[in-house]
Design a protein around this nucleic acid. Structure first.
Lengths: 341, 341
DNA sequence: CTGTTAGCGCGTTCAT
DNA sequence: ATGAACGCGCTAACAG
């Protein structure tokens, strides 16, 4: 150890101590079976004595492989990131022998694209997967080095859903089931104007309502927090015929529940309420919030699978997101007041 | 480009094209000002033409610096990871010129320790910070190479709080304020038996209650989800004198709210309820859940600051977590029924 | 089965 | 101000 003068032991140090060539040590470390038994023992002893660990930077430089993939995620002001999607991407990568590093990038699309190029061009990683969209530079031609940069945009800068997460078809089921329960007068509470997921959910909501000959008494849009829901309920006239409020997510729905409580409207007796996203507490929020459960693992698996297929020069499997969304009916929805006994 | 045969351009390629030595290009890339103007122009042109980007693996090998730090986080079944703490660690690292990669490790303390050693010994990173505890191997002596491995255990394997996050002193304020509001009969709902944070919160709760001469009618412990709270309320006798239920987190409290609703107990008129952790929807869960807001950014900043101080051979600043917790009083708490007009 | 040689791409050292 | 030589730690290729 004293010969090392504080530096990390290298192959050569081990080789010297074990009285073999550094190449033999290299073979031993790589698990080459063709090594004499007595040498194996001496090499292992030397490794243990010196505490040798291969220098992965040097190895990567030599073999031009790092086995590392980057997953780029927007760094957001929101307090939580979707761990299920992240662990699904990691698990999928592990299954193919890759490690994953998660890179949180603040500052929106251009900063994200810059960082993705940096990562790809640095030689650190063999592929970059972003869960949020890139700007146009990514699509313009292949780059030297050929590290694939893939966007699988399922989030926006604020970590709200995008892309496939925009699929609002559960709205059709929600409105349809509420109609079967006797509801005819609806109201919608959505996220910020211009927010894609909210726009899509409102659009599908409105088509579903009119397709069944029902009445929508308007929509209220605002920030993704409870106050938007509270205010929307507060603004309804006292004699409103609305009996069902369909919301774009659970925060909004929680606000609607609170607003209803403030007005003395019982849920679901006077009012049915639905959310989206199955936030943890929603299930036990009295009276239990009907919501849409989204299979984040499916998304993570699919996204990473696509990058890995690209890496292996294979055709990515056809994406199948039919099982992405499932409506969970809970206590916040029930028969319309006029349909009750 | 055709000379490159598909490989990445290197310093030498640029040098050849610009008719200088690869050293000069290296200096140019490192921002050396002492380079002739005409050479600068030709080098820049060659870089642009070839799309040259430095190979960071090679550079790191040469300078023995990667500028990379790892943050180890338990990979959990829970759907969300604390993004605020992660972005705080990242921001702190950036301020000192480091990049951060987040490594999600499944499988508990030993797997985590293994992985930390792997990371530290690999030469990839210059430091490893784990937000969950290591096993004893970490403390046993310094390792060759000297990459610091630091644990700042604020989570357990399931990403529930540990270490400083166990600080349950807000219980004293909660019980005290409820006592001022006229409450004398308390009940506690906590997490799983043996769970450190739950144990601590229950212990402080009980001390606070008895210190003020109040009565605790027991505690109910169970999994961190709403059903534990629902069941706890359901099990109380109809004529219970309990008017305040203090919970160990917001999921439990949400369950208590639902249980109260099922029994027809108005909150806060009949019953006051408090949670912990300030989950997003809690604020708008009717009637607004009183909770403890935890400053996760402070924790992330402090943890990374400690690693960076170690890295720079400095003394880490004294940790100051006095501002970690703040009680947010909301509508789920109010005067005791007997203290109402 | 093992050793020798030759780079990987870069930055440092020492020359000029 | 620029260039030549060297080596970081490792593995591929070839000898033996």
């Amino acid at each position: 150890m004293s010969l090392l003068e504080g530096r990390r032991p290298t192959l050569k140090d081990v080789a010297k101590l074990a009285n073999v060539s550094h190449q033999t040590v290299s073979r031993f470390v790589s698990g080459d079976p063709a090594i004499r038994e007595e040498n194996r023992a001496r090499i292992q002893a030397a490794i243990d004595e010196l505490g040798y660990r291969p220098n992965i930077v040097a190895r990567s430089m030599r073999v031009r492989r790092t086995g590392l993939l980057s997953v780029v995620v927007p760094a957001t002001a929101a307090p939580y990131t979707p761990a299920k999607m992240m662990s699904a991407t990691t698990a999928e990568a592990h299954a193919f022998g890759y490690e994953v590093e998660v890179v949180h990038v603040a500052g929106g699309m251009h900063a994200r694209t810059d960082r993705a190029f940096e990562l790809a061009d640095s030689g650190w990683v063999e592929g970059v997967l972003s869960l949020a969209s890139f700007d146009d530079r990514v699509r313009s031609g292949t780059r030297p080095g050929g590290v694939p940069i893939l966007e699988f945009p399922v989030y926006d800068d604020n970590l709200h859903g995008a892309g496939i997460m925009l699929d609002a078809s559960p709205m059709i089921e929600i409105v349809g089931r509420l109609a079967e329960l006797g509801h005819r007068h609806f109201f919608h509470v959505g996220g910020p104007v211009g927010h894609p997921a909210s726009n899509e959910r409102q659009a599908v909501y409105e088509r579903a309502v009119s397709a069944r000959g029902l009445v929508s008494h308007g929509a209220s849009r605002g920030p993704f927090d409870g106050s938007t829901g509270v205010d929307a309920v507060a603004a309804l006239p006292e004699d409103t015929p609305v009996t069902a409020i369909v919301c774009a997510n659970d925060e909004l729905a929680a606000g609607v529940l609170m607003g209803a409580s403030q007005r003395g409207w019982a849920v679901p007796d006077r009012l049915s309420v639905t959310g989206w996203d199955n936030r943890q507490v929603g299930q036990y929020m009295p009276p239990g919030l009907t919501t849409v459960i989204v299979d984040h693992e499916l998304v993570g698996r699919t996204a990473m699978g696509k990058l890995i297929a690209t890496l292996r020069g294979e055709q990515p499997p056809v994406e199948d997101f039919r099982a992405l969304n499932a409506v969970a009916w809970r206590g916040s929805t029930g028969p319309a007041p006029e349909a009750r006994p």
